[in-house]
């Protein structure tokens, strides 16, 4: 059963107002073809969960610049000045989350956990409104799981079952996001036959993936 579909077919599932996780670090490992497709399709009012908003002309930055984002969870927005401008103008509701906490909250969302305990953010504004739990005399913040309607991820090699191998630093948030959404769409730099990726090298199992779209190399 092949999961390969055309871009338009995969993006049929993305609707206005949905919560969408998009992987990538400064655009590296971001599915650019899917992001461009979202802009072309015209979806808006998205709630985006991502590491950073890259640059205005790159990755998730393009969704910000094109006014498609209503709400944002990210760890860093400093490399895209447009995000800050829209935040200050009240056009985007931004929540900043420490990067490690963000990774674990998404992992928890996909792994059926009720949250995670982290020392990160104790004594800072990050702890506001959160429950503190003491374990062996040390304080931790209870951070809640994150889930999404859609996850858009990018694989360097993807087989027809949706098994994914990531090259270099493109892995970043992709494996966690692939587990934490109702529908997972993978953009493949290269689509390969089943069996071409050694089972030992599969990082994201095809069971997490719903659709595979061919992206740019």
């Amino acid at each position: 059963m092949s999961k390969i579909v055309e871009l338009e077919k995969a993006l049929e599932y993305v609707k206005d107002g949905m919560t969408v996780m998009i992987a990538g670090f400064m655009g590296v490992g971001t599915p650019e073809t899917l992001v461009d497709g979202l802009i072309e399709k015209g979806v808006k009012d998205l709630f985006i969960i991502c590491t950073d908003t890259a640059r205005p002309e790159k990755g998730i930055g393009k969704l910000i610049v094109n006014d498609r984002v209503k709400k944002l969870i990210a760890s860093h927005i400093g490399t895209n000045p447009v995000t800050g401008q829209k935040m200050n103008a009240g056009e985007i509701d931004v929540t900043l989350v420490p990067q490690g906490t963000l990774a674990e909250r998404i992992r928890a969302g996909g792994a059926g956990l009720g949250g995670i305990l982290t020392p990160t953010g104790i004594g800072t504004v990050v702890e506001e409104g959160k429950e503190k739990i003491t374990v062996d005399g040390k304080q931790y913040l209870l951070e809640l799981p994150l889930k999404a309607d859609i996850a858009l991820i990018r694989g360097s090699k993807v087989d027809k079952l949706g098994n994914v191998w990531y090259k270099g630093a493109t892995r970043n948030f992709n494996p966690m996001m692939a587990t934490a959404a109702d529908i997972v769409i993978v953009e493949a730099e290269e689509i390969v036959e089943i069996g071409e990726i050694d089972p030992n090298d599969v990082v994201t199992s095809g069971i997490f993936v719903d659709y595979v779209v061919k992206g740019e190399e």
Partner: peptide, 15 residues
């Protein structure tokens, strides 16, 4: 003025 976000800094400093 400047709200770039903490990125990985809070985790790094704690860990």
């Amino acid at each position: 003025k400047m709200v770039p976000g903490m990125g990985g800094a809070m985790d790094l400093v704690v860990g």
